[in-house]
Structures are given as C-alpha cells and as structure tokens.
Design a protein around this nucleic acid. Sequence first.
DNA 1: CGCACGTTTGATGGACATCAAGGATTGTGG
DNA 2: CCACAATCCTTGATGTCCATCAAACGTGCG
Lengths: 232, 232
Amino acid sequence: MDMQARCGLLHGVALFQGLSGDGLRTVAEAAGERRFSKEETLFRQGEPATHGVVLAAGRVRLDQVTADGRNLVLRHFGPGEMLAVVAVLREIPLPASALALDGGLALTWSASRLSKLIEAHPAIARNALEVVGGRVEELQARLQEVSVQRVEQRIAAALLRLASQSGRRTEAGIEIPFALSRQDLAEMTATTLHTVSRTLSAWDRDRVIDARRSSRLIILRPHRLAELAEHA
Amino acid sequence: MDMQARCGLLHGVALFQGLSGDGLRTVAEAAGERRFSKEETLFRQGEPATHGVVLAAGRVRLDQVTADGRNLVLRHFGPGEMLAVVAVLREIPLPASALALDGGLALTWSASRLSKLIEAHPAIARNALEVVGGRVEELQARLQEVSVQRVEQRIAAALLRLASQSGRRTEAGIEIPFALSRQDLAEMTATTLHTVSRTLSAWDRDRVIDARRSSRLIILRPHRLAELAEHA
DNA sequence: CGCACGTTTGATGGACATCAAGGATTGTGG
DNA sequence: CCACAATCCTTGATGTCCATCAAACGTGCG
C-alpha cells in the first residue's frame, strides 16, 4: 500500500478526522502494515496490547471468552474502524480476541508511536473519545436488549444491526455478505445455536428471510424483521 | 466551594490528571456549581447534553428507561467521577438519566467551556479516553454476566461491585452505605424484585449477608459471596 | 391509627436451555 | 469423481430457571 493510498484511506477514518494533510501524512508514514487471511487471529485476549489497529480491508470479529469457556461476540469491524487502540493507551492486556472473517489488511501503530502521534495531534485523542463514546452507547443498547428482550427480538435486532453495518442491497433483499453460522448468531445474542436454528427456520418459512444453508443469509422483509425486533 | 477546595478536589480527579497547577486553576475557575438533594434528578434521558459533570460529593445512579417502560440501572457514581462528558462532546442527547441517591454537589462545565478547556489542555481528552475505556470494559463485563450467568451469580456480583465501589468496612462486615431496595438490585441485575428478595432471604438465612429490612445491607462473608458469584 | 410502600413467600406457567439423534453440505483423499 | 469424514444444521423431547400472578406481612410516616 503506497503512501497515497494510505492517506486516502486514513482521510476517511473517524480516528483521524480533522487532521491536516501534513498530519495525515505523518500518521500514514508511521504506520505498519499487516496482511491477514481468513480465519487468522489478529490478536488474542489476555496478550499485552502492543499495537493499535485500523482496518484497511476485510472484516474482523471481536470475541470474548468467558471463565467457563463460552464465547461471546462483542462486535464486528469493517474497513476504517479502529481496534485495540484504547487497550494500547491504557496499557492493559487485550480484553478480547480479534478473528478475521475475510482476508484483509490492517494498518498498525506501536504503543510508543501512537502516543507520540497523539501528542503531536491532540485531535486524535478527541476523535478516539467520540468513537469510544459510540461504542459505550452500543454496549448499553446491547445490555438493555439482553436484559429485557426475548431471544427472538434479540436475534432480529442482531440481524438488522449486521445488515445496517455490512449489508448489501440485492434484488431479493439485503444480503449479509459473509458466512454466518447459527453458532455465531447465538454468541452474538446470548442464546444457543438450537434456538437460533429454530427461529431462523420459522422466519424462513414465513419468507421474512432466506436462510437456506450454503448461501449467505438474505433479509427479504426488513420491515417485518424490525417489527419482530420491537414487538413485546 | 472556594477555589482552593475546587483545585484540591480536581487534583484527584481522573479526568484532570497530569494538569499543571495553572491548568487546574483554569479548569476550577471555569466550573459552575450545582448543589442537589436526595432523590433529585440531575439530568434526564433524551434532553440535550448541555453540561459535563464531575461529582464533588454525593452519590448518583445512572438509569436508562427501555422502550417498554422498564428501568435499567447502568452504573453508580461517587465523588470524583465524571458524567455526561462524552454526550456533551459528541453533541448527542443524554442516553440516560442521573438520579441523586444522597444530597451532594457537582461541578459542571458547559459544552463550549469544556471544548475550550480540552483544546487548551489536550491531556483532558486523553484522560477522558482512559476513563471511558474503563467504562467500556465494565459494560463488556456486565454484558457477559447477563449473557451467560444465572441470576444468583449476577446478584452476588452486583453486591460485590457495590461493595468495592462504595462499601464501608465495619466490624460485622462490609456495609453498603445507602438505601438499596430490592427493586434497585433487580434493575441492576436484569431480574425482578421477587427473585432478588428470595435470593437475599436465603443468603440472610445462611448468614452470608445481613439484609434485614430497615437497615443498610451488610456483607458478612464476602469470600462466600465471591464464590457464589463465580461458581456455575 | 391507618394508609402507603416495600417486602416476603407460595403457586403456576412459560421461555428457553439442554439432551438426543438424525439429516444436509462441504471438503478431502483415494 | 466418488466415498467418507467432518461440520454444521434441524427437529423433537424433556427439564429447569425464573418471571408472573397472587396475597399477605412488616415498617414507617402522616
């Protein structure tokens, strides 16, 4: 990835909003590149946080393993989003693991470089604050969901969230453009793959979604799904 | 509250770590004061976020109301902690309401002043980032709890969290120094007051806690409670 | 004193996890 | 290119945790 491409990418990244062309170039020059392939683990929960990451291409899932060995999907990340930055700045071990869903490319900055960049460009810290603020909001929303909503609503909400974050419009409906197992959905909604399977089957029967195995999931009637997410 | 007292307070506040004496004084001088009494609402969910807040004295509970009218306790705040700061900087409506559990005093800064202070003292943004990072961690932990743990464990965890945040050592055990209804605990742990009541009664019988009505709750055997929080 | 509010405790039911077993797809190696 | 293994998915049966419904019981306050 040459400097011009990097700058082009970083220009659209929330973390670096408001930086001058010069500033952006400094940031771009300080970056390392890390190419990764599908299924690869970018970093592992519990390890020291050595590098801040911004995704250039590809999709990544952030996982947290519980004490009793269960897995919880915290969030999905796409191009332009930052990972691990806060853990780096707080100098704490990584609280979650990052798993690549596609192959892709990440730009990375070591802890010391990141600190220096922030010192030189305080806007970065402010931008990071806004991003993390958004993440707090998301987490509060999910906490609410898990606390008061029933499984069916949570699954609907999760699908809608995935659709709005990464969905592709097609003629039939909105397609979720990566493999998504029932287990994955279960880990996103705090339930079991069995319940997810039953629920998706029912929705498939009602033509709300197209969930045939061996094809990407397609939301046929988003509006209906939104109703299902809301309704008591 | 005179300037010296303010500076003394702010000196210990995470948000203002690393500021020079001068810087601290500027911050202190820019602050407004807001006295509040027990049961008073400091701000209400959905209102525009006009002021960042740091608690000088008193205890505050952050509540979120769900679409169907239920209430969820997001967090408790004590002296030195910041509220609403992120919403102010992001210029979004307040995502939750703040209810005073005691009388107390808050220092406040308007949105424009806060922005100027951050511009003059970039360390503030970095500090805020660390604080909010910690909050993300907390939320992820709670999300995990609600997702995979059973009610009894969650209640135990909530009591331990309250104890570690605000508990007072007494001869008998650790006392939680404010009124805490079963309903409150239910809203903190995503359950009902009935289940909380049953659980606390059982623990009271086992002398793990002292939960007689009309006295503050006391944790008699913290170690046992920690076991209850962990064990499957 | 009596009313209001928070609490306790029992009875019942429902949502969903768990247990169990079979069916469909994908990949792989002969 | 087929066979077989490894996954992932589906669907039924059963059980259980906990919400809900219901009703009384303190406790403190006006």
